[in-house]
Design a protein around this nucleic acid. Structure first.
Lengths: 336, 336
DNA sequence: TTGACTTACGAAAACGATTAAGGCAGAGGA
DNA sequence: TCCTCTGCCTTAATCGTTTTCGTAAGTCAA
């Protein structure tokens, strides 16, 4: 590896001058700067990130913690898309993305320790168990943190607008399509789930509709099998719903199977709606009615905000940014 | 941050002794080692990765280049699952995973330069355009490299057994299910595609079956729309196929839609098969006949091999490891 | 000519760790 | 008693940068 020392020898100036020339400091002559830059390019010089990090305490590296409760890892379309967008924006700002892990082989480190070890300038938390003590420790440390879809006190959070999302979805189904008997199979307990569920009840109430207890089922995200069972239960009620909302688009597939297994068709006999707006929802027939979360914007904002927290810590205050979703009016809900 | 210096002061030994004690060198007394370790724990010491990397030239960081031609990013189930497995194994061996990117904002670096800048010990390449000059440069550099599903001369490659995969698939459809008119919509040109296509022709030939030119269509991976169009073309042939093999499970969905749009049913009127064995293939009704690629093993092996190349460069030779897939006998192919 | 500034650069310390080489005390042998 | 080993620890150099402080030369007004 060619270092600044090599350049300094060739140009005939000190290492300090090389450093300052390459970093465009004002106390170096323009001709010297030009010469240094040229030789650096000739010799194929690139800085050594470790040395720079060691000295400056800035790694230009952002750690991400991406793993959902169910262990879907990256095979979770929503988070995968967010990560993709996050990565793109972070990279455009000169930051690299690394995964944070705990439990290193030899050395037992928790999340926070791992971050310090690697010197991550900041971290983005998503798709994890936010009640995990290691996660809480990280979130309450002095490391810049941005969370996605979860709010920690005094930390910046990017949250998908689940309240409005469910409201729009329900209003569409109720007002535009005329359904009155709407069931909701929700996901496992989390702040996202609580928001969606509360919004579901509130919207129904505002619309003057009643929600029988047996219309609200405790399902799981991305678990079609569970959706299948619960859908069967719903369909076998004395007074079955005419439309079922699922935890997410993928989980809805279980519902679709259940409905078909009963010899019923979508949307003629039963209507369904999902959530997320992942690719599969736009491809399956009938096209799913769902709320498409703006993954691009969520990832982009997360990157913007973490960089801001890193680079201008004084001016950056903990924000709570809500990202609107978009109602996709597919064909899976019948207009009554 | 508490450093070795802090520990050395507290214990009353030199920094060198602390370093050697923590690294369990043999020339430090057992009592001293114990004392150092204890104080280190008390003070919450963790090593500084940058300093260590700077000195030892080992970052314990593996770079990954994961991006497919179509820009699916991580929302590609197959690669997402591979990445997940890769990450798990690498982490268990004490390595972290970072993304390699080119085109950093201020400083224009290519992949190789970026790797050197960050000091990645090795890199794993997957899901990218292997003909890209930057990728080739990286693959032919002296950085340890493992590729997935592509072979570079003299580099270790983990490849999914596409030849056997297609053969098993075709033999199942032909022999066990009795189909004779089998069409294949293949993906975009790549070594994977060429292997699959060649295996398709060879297997059909061995079985004594003829493959009309119009039964082989140039489709795209993960593009249901394209599959839709091509499926329509196939169905409208004078002598349409009884079974259609798609580029992958996801692309097959377009085919399913096309078949249904024609008022036909699967598998009674037309049989279909996919490739990959991603979750959706196991969830959709009818369950897809497909080849499940062993993503867990592929990722695991890639991690094993790159670590081996890094840690024992002398003994490690360029290998070509073939990972078998598994035929999933769903219900999407009718037994004639 | 002198003193005060400005401009352009260099010397050296520092970041936190690793490691080769060397020192020193006590044990053991001749 | 002297010498040689061991065992245990220290000194000091080093990795590649950044940054503070210093200084020499040049500029300019008085």
């Amino acid at each position: 590896m060619v270092s600044m020392k090599d350049i300094s020898k060739k140009v005939g100036v000190s290492v300090a001058t090389v450093s300052k020339a390459l970093n465009d400091h004002s106390d170096i002559g323009e001709t010297t700067k030009e010469r240094v830059r040229q030789v650096a390019k000739e010799m194929g010089y690139f800085p050594n990130a470790s040395a720079r990090t060691l000295k400056t305490n800035k790694s230009h590296n952002i750690g991400v913690l991406f793993r959902d409760e169910a262990g879907n890892g990256f095979t979770h379309d929503f988070y995968a898309a967010v990560l993709d967008s996050l990565k793109k924006t972070a990279e455009s700002k000169g930051y690299d993305i690394s995964f944070i892990n705990s439990d290193r082989a030899a050395m037992h480190m928790n999340y926070l320790e791992h971050c310090r070890y690697r010197g991550y300038d900041g971290v983005v938390l998503a798709c994890i168990d936010f009640s995990d003590s290691g996660v809480v420790e990280l979130a309450t440390s002095n490391v810049p943190v941005v969370t996605i879809d979860h709010i920690f006190d005094n930390r910046t959070a990017i949250i998908s607008d689940n309240v409005t999302g469910i409201r729009e979805l329900v209003e569409y189904i109720y007002k535009e399509c005329g359904h009155r008997k709407i069931a909701y199979i929700h996901g496992a307990d989390s702040s996202v789930t609580r928001n969606r569920l509360a919004s579901f009840y509130k919207t129904m109430e505002e619309l003057g509709a009643t929600v029988p207890d047996e219309y609200v089922k405790d399902g799981r995200y991305r678990k079609p099998d569970m959706s299948y069972e619960l859908t069967i239960e719903l369909l076998e009620l004395d007074d079955p719903p005419t439309c079922i909302i699922y935890p997410d688009d993928f989980a809805a597939i279980g519902g679709i199977n259940a409905i078909k297994s009963k010899g019923l068709s979508i949307p003629d006999d039963v209507s369904i709606a999902g959530y997320d707006g992942i690719r599969i929802a736009k491809v399956l027939e009938p096209k799913m009615v769902t709320i498409e979360q703006d993954t691009g914007k969520i990832g982009d904002l997360a990157a913007q905000k973490i960089v801001q927290l890193i680079e201008r810590p004084r001016s950056a205050i903990a924000e709570r940014i809500v990202v609107e979703g978009k109602l996709l009016k597919g064909d899976s809900v019948k207009k009554l």
